[in-house]
Amino acid sequence: MSIEVETVRRLFELSKLSVAEEEIASFQGDLEAMLDYAKSLEEVNTDGVEPTFFITPQANVFREDVVSPSLPSEKVLQEAPTKIHRYFRLPKVIENI
């Protein structure tokens, strides 16, 4: 099954990953191989089979609306690369709007 170069670029873009131009062809090949593998499922006759969204038979799992303590903020921020006054600190994320 073939996949367009543009689609590969779009997938990288959506995943916020950068890709070198010379690598695209190899990813294209890998993705095509994966699609071909998954394509074998098309051979199964699924007429009249309801789609399965969940693999366990569970339903209606709820919790009561009762507050319990949150994590201490030192813990919350423990893995943050940089922080300031209890905030996570990040590089600029938006263009001037």
Partner: peptide, 13 residues
């Protein structure tokens, strides 16, 4: 997200 003057983004969850 708070967008600070210096261009940094501060996040409160």
């Amino acid at each position: 997200s708070l967008h600070a003057e210096n261009g940094e983004t501060l996040v409160d969850y």
